[in-house]
Simulated scan of single mutants.
Amino acid sequence: MNKSPLPLVVMTNVVFPETVALFEGVARVVVNDRPEPWPADVMREHCREAVGLMAFMTDRIDGAFLDGCPRLRVVGAALKGFDNIDVEAATRRGVQVTICEDLLTAPSAELAIGLMLSLGRHMLPGDAGIRDAGFGGWRPVHYGVGLADAEVGIVGFGRVGQAIAERLAGFGCRISAFDASPGAFPERFDASVARRGLPELLENSDFVVLALPLTPTTLHLIDASAISTMKTGALLINPARGSLVDEQAVADALEGGKLAGYAADVFECEDWARPDRPDCVNPRLRERTASTVLTPHLGSAVTRVRREIEASAARSIIDVLSGRQPAGAINVPADTGNGPDTEMRRTS
């Protein structure tokens, strides 16, 4: 009797060769070899026979997509946030979903600090000035805001928010945080981080740093109304999810002088789960080069970390295909008759 062909695993973005090598003898692998995401129809065709899927930020995994993948058993997300995946739809269809819970924490916190320093100290306008006009020596220009003695408010105090607070400890700033989740403030922060309600935090902070997941509750948490309560001249930092802010409202606040600056590594146009998401970064933000720092989603863009993220997602997929409980599981799939030894799952 001929041995059954290996199951198909699809990776929707460019990955390291070491990641592909992990599947040797376990699965056939199809990889997107270009930095641009596949068009939706191309992705559906690649995934039609897939048993495992390594998903990334650029993918929208919803019920309609899953219905076109009747053999799919596991979505191993190379992500921490999973707002682009309909977990309930996956659960109903017997599909395991896993995430990388903590690998993105440190690099995301590091980038948040970098955004704060770059925006507050006018590093990009200074760099541009040297490149455009040369440099004749010190001049009394580009005076900004430092972290020493500043009031820094962190909105969201999960792992990333806590990591940001830990890294700010040596800068001599006063740190406060808001989080609506019970038990969000470990005892180790009792002496270093003041717990505040969101209105009080916004009103008193020189820097407001967002460290929240995107949910229906946090969508446009920072809108025109919230910005109106902020300290005039405050700096807003968003390394978390683009749609936590209303980019139009931020542009209005920059133009009107309510906000002195906005730094973002994430943008509303990236939030694939929103059917009304804009198709590009707000042009008014892009035009304000003196008061914005905009980076192309570099939060986890550390080579070592990206290797670890891919390997983690790959191991989760392999575990499911091998009948083992994967690390990073965020759902308990419905029993659809798809046991660990079943090659494929057929929809009824």
Rank of each mutant, 00 (worst) to 15 (best):
F207I: 03
T218C: 12
L214T: 13
Q162V: 01
T215L: 06
A211M: 01
R174G: 12
F178Q: 09
L201W: 01
P216W: 11
I222D: 00
L212R: 07
L210Y: 05
M230N: 13
G183N: 07
G197L: 14
L214D: 12
F189P: 04
S176P: 03
F207G: 00
L219K: 15
Q162R: 11
A165K: 08
S176Q: 04
T218A: 11
L212K: 02
V209N: 07
R196H: 08
T232I: 06
P182A: 13
T217K: 14
C173Y: 00
I175T: 09
T232S: 10
T217A: 15
E200K: 12
I175Q: 05
M230I: 12
I227S: 05
P182Y: 04
L201H: 06
A169I: 11
F189C: 09
I222E: 03
A191K: 15
M230D: 10
A165I: 09
D179N: 11
E200N: 12
F185R: 10
P199S: 12
A177Q: 07
V208I: 14
V209I: 09
T229R: 14
Q162G: 12
A224S: 15
D190G: 05
L221Q: 06
S192A: 14
E166S: 11
F178L: 01
I175Y: 02
E203K: 15
F171A: 06
D223L: 04
T232W: 05
H220W: 09
A194I: 12
N204P: 05
I175E: 00
E187W: 02
A226S: 13
A165P: 08
A191Q: 14
Q162C: 06
G197N: 13
R195W: 05
V209C: 11
I175S: 02
P213S: 02
S228P: 03
L221C: 05
R167Y: 07
E200V: 13
S225H: 11
S192P: 10
T215P: 01
S181E: 07
A180S: 13
G172M: 09
A184Y: 08
P216L: 13
L168S: 04
E187G: 14
Q162L: 07
E200W: 09
E200S: 14
A226M: 12
P182E: 07
S176F: 04
S228K: 11
F207V: 05
L202T: 02
D223I: 05
R195Y: 02
